[in-house]
Write a protein that binds this DNA or RNA. Structure first.
Lengths: 178, 178
DNA sequence: CAGTATCCTGTCCGATACTG
DNA sequence: CAGTATCGGACAGGATACTG
């Protein structure tokens, strides 16, 4: 992160990113979620140098998050649209937004999530899709999944789980026991 | 992002980050969520150069995401613990994890979220805390909040909202109308 | 154990000029 | 409109040595 500051600091997402890392790509995705598709839309919005934008866009396409599609034969014109993986990034964007709004919004909220049917402002929270319970604080831990190797994270996750509920320890990953 | 590849590519979070940007800081936060607090825990886990770890840790403290606390008088020993803002980053981490799990997990899930009471694996989804409705796809848009300025995002958000529900347009931001 | 001190390298980015 | 071509600078990150 060697930009002095992100383009639009009144955006809570940008503010969030300012705290954690790098991220032209994410800002491009953000604009894509706003509905932008064309090179110069991104360029004007982000005030990014054209060569850099090309680079980021190319990378996003290579990573499968965006698709470059010709929408005009002559003159040849292209647009950049989100792929399914790209669209699936939206919850992260929303989570970043919520974080920025709740912790780094000195001047009030500059972006909110809106329910398109009711027009109501949404308060995004994470829940367990199965149980419907809110995911908060200490009730949930990151743990090793079926494909995990025997790393230090697994050991810590296993220990955390054991501390919390000794009788409910799952049987994976087998390697953990070794 | 000029590391060749992140330390542990079997971690879906790392895999996610690989797609979007930079991020030692996030990996440190990840480990903090796993329960790590000490310098050498982070160092061993991340295989990061000590000077870089110092730099990142210092930055995280400066940004208010972690706190450096002395836990031993002599010899002086310090630990790094998440602040409230730091803990609030967890949903983003979870969202990143879910994204990685759902879209970039060629070998199966290596990290999952676990309900500490029941031991069940959690399927994290975003919902509206007020209405309880799932936040998916096209039903929700990022829009300008009360503190927003008259930027292009506002115009696009406004347009999107108008397209979706012409009768439910909110009265903010006033500047938008100007 | 918990860092500090140097030096070096890579690359991400910024600025600018130019093209069909 | 949608980029490509060059050049330069800043800083994140890497390697290594050293300290109380």
């Amino acid at each position: 992160m060697h930009r002095k500051s992100f383009t639009n600091m009144s955006c809570p997402i940008a503010r969030s990113l300012e705290r954690v890392g790098e991220w032209w790509s994410i800002l491009i995705l953000r604009d894509a979620f706003y509905g932008m598709t064309r090179f110069d839309e991104f360029q004007k919005s982000l005030e990014i140098a054209p060569n850099i934008l090309t680079r980021r866009l190319t990378a996003l396409v290579a990573e499968g998050l965006m698709e470059r599609r010709q929408y005009l034969e002559k003159p040849p014109r292209f647009e950049y649209i989100l792929t399914e993986s790209g669209r699936a990034f939206k919850p992260i964007m929303i989570a970043l937004m919520a974080w920025g709004n709740n912790h780094f919004a000195p001047d009030g909220l500059s972006v909110v999530l809106t329910d398109i049917e009711t027009g109501a402002t949404v308060e995004p929270i994470l829940v367990d899709g199965k149980s419907g319970k809110k995911i908060i604080g200490k009730n949930y831990v990151l743990t090793a999944g079926p494909a995990a190797g025997p790393g230090v994270h697994n050991r810590m996750a296993y220990a955390a789980q054991k501390r919390a509920s000794p009788d409910k320890i799952p049987d994976f990953p087998p390697k953990l026991m070794a």
